[in-house]
Structures are given as structure tokens and as C-alpha cells.
């Protein structure tokens, strides 16, 4: 079952449930909800971190490739005292 389907199913189940009074103890519902959504949010978080790693890897490769092909002496680029 896909993450979004799971969330939708939880939503429908909760929306059509009977009402009582939250002020008696809102804590139990907060615990249950976390358990329902943590799987989905954890999966999203995992993908997000993975995607950031991919982007960082590509960016690093791109930068090092650029340095290799366009700049034979990269350590000269940073100095303030270099002359044209």
C-alpha cells in the first residue's frame, strides 16, 4: 500500500468515527495519530535525506569536473593578491 493511500485510509476512518469529548484525555488520540502517520512521514523523510545526498554527490562531481577541465591551477583562484 502506498504511503498516500495509507494516510487517506486513516483519514477516512477517523473522519467517520463517532464523536466524544476530547477534553477528557486528548493524550491517547495524540499517541494513536503519531503511530498512524509516523510510517508515512518517516518514509518521506528517508527519501528527502537520500535525495539531498544524491544532489550533494552530483553537485560535488560537477564542481570537481568543472575545476578539472576549466582551471588548471585552482589554488591560484582564491588569493586576493592575484593579478590579471
Amino acid at each position: 500500500m502506498k504511503a498516500s493511500q495509507l494516510l487517506l485510509a486513516s483519514a477516512i476512518w477517523l473522519v467517520f468515527s463517532e464523536d466524544s469529548y476530547a477534553y477528557i484525555d486528548p493524550g491517547t488520540g495524540s499517541f494513536i495519530l503519531q503511530m498512524l502517520i509516523a510510517g508515512v512521514l518517516g518514509a518521506i523523510f528517508y527519501l528527502k535525506v537520500y535525495w539531498q545526498k544524491v544532489k550533494l554527490f552530483v553537485a560535488n562531481r560537477w564542481r570537481s569536473a568543472k575545476v578539472r577541465f576549466t582551471d588548471p591551477e585552482p589554488d591560484m583562484q582564491d588569493g586576493d593578491d592575484q593579478t590579471e
Partner: peptide
């Protein structure tokens, strides 16, 4: 949707349950 709307529903549903 998750942290407010469904959260509110869950609180109401489980308020009087152990």
C-alpha cells in the same frame, strides 16, 4: 491535515478509551 484535522479527530475518538 495530519497534525491538526486528523489529530483532532483522533483525540476525540480516543478521549474516553483506554
Amino acid at each position: 491535515l495530519s497534525h491538526i484535522h486528523l489529530h483532532a479527530k483522533a483525540q476525540i475518538r480516543y478521549a474516553d478509551k483506554t
